[in-house]
């Protein structure tokens, strides 16, 4: 028996081109916004010279992580190492990409997670989409991103947003669904409006879980931003890519260490943002 060959690939291709032809202007606006966001972050991060930045960052990390001195000192050492390897500008570019994509992913992901927790219909629509997004190999996102946005930071960031968003949605949804029934009853019994219940009970109680989602989102952003170098995203990922292409072990390794340092700092910082129970 010969199965008919379903033209799934062709259909998707046609669809993507159709979208590009008809909604290209929207894509352009979106592209400009993303570009502004990235350069905004980059300008802020590169505003101070490295040493001044390191001091300010150490103070902010110390305060933001609820006075975690070890983390602050570790960050200083890490940043100094990055600077000594001559990777400062590239690292700041990577951090700017991570922050931009994580910000957009969270701005879309957290409200979506809240809606999914509140509404079963939305949940049943979102869940298979999330499964799809998370199981699809990350490289695959790069292709439509390139078609819509060409090469460069923007398509890299779009692919990263898509890749990093699922945990934010999932964990926000989970956190709100895990709010104990009695606390939900307390809110209702004292006469809360739905908004009061969300902001005064559900979100604060779900905060540790939501923050785990924020942490995941940022870490996934970082890993994808590196891969997105394949379609022209800048930063340390590009340095790694160049290292691979030229079989330059030293350059690739140094950029790799830079990524690891950024990853550790971002991970520890986001884990320490919420009060421990």
């Amino acid at each position: 028996m010969v199965l008919p060959e379903l033209p799934i690939g062709e259909a998707v291709e046609t669809g993507v081109y159709w979208l590009n032809d008809n909604f290209g202007f929207l894509m352009d606006i979106f592209s400009d916004l993303i570009d502004m966001l990235i350069s905004g972050f980059k300008d802020v991060l590169l505003f101070l010279p490295p040493f001044a930045f390191i001091i300010v960052a150490a103070i902010l990390i110390y305060l933001g992580s609820r006075k975690n001195l070890k983390l602050a000192i570790g960050s200083v050492v890490g940043f100094l190492l990055i600077d000594s390897m001559g990777l400062w500008t590239l690292s700041m570019e990577t951090i700017a990409l991570v922050l931009s994509s994580a910000l957009v992913a969270l701005l879309i992901g957290i409200p979506t997670g809240i809606l999914a927790a509140k509404n079963e219909t939305i949940f049943h629509i979102v869940k298979p989409v999330l499964d799809f997004m998370q199981t699809m190999p990350s490289f695959v996102y790069l292709i439509p991103a390139v078609i819509f946005f060409g090469l460069g930071n923007v398509p890299g960031l779009v692919a990263t947003i898509v890749f990093a968003m699922p945990p934010a949605i999932r964990l926000t949804n989970l956190g709100i669904r895990q709010v104990p029934v009695e606390l939900d009853e307390v809110a209702s019994a004292f006469g809360t409006t739905p908004m009061q219940k969300l902001f005064k009970v559900e979100l604060p109680v779900a905060l540790p879980t939501i923050m785990a989602g924020v942490n995941q989102c940022i870490m996934l952003s970082l890993s994808m931003v590196v891969i997105a170098a394949m379609i022209g995203a800048r930063g340390l990922g590009y340095q790694v890519l160049v290292g691979i292409q030229r079989v330059d072990i030293g350059q690739g390794f140094e950029a790799g260490i830079g990524i690891v340092i950024i990853a550790i700092i971002l991970d520890r910082l986001t884990q320490n943002l919420t009060p421990k129970k």
Binding site: P180, E182, E185, V186, F190, G191, T192, T193, V201, V205
Partner: peptide, 19 residues
């Protein structure tokens, strides 16, 4: 909502305090 706010309130077995 108004009745729940003004007329009655509730105490729970599990205390149900906001953590």
């Amino acid at each position: 909502r108004e009745a729940r706010r003004k007329k009655m309130s509730m105490v729970f077995q599990s205390f149900a305090l906001l953590p």
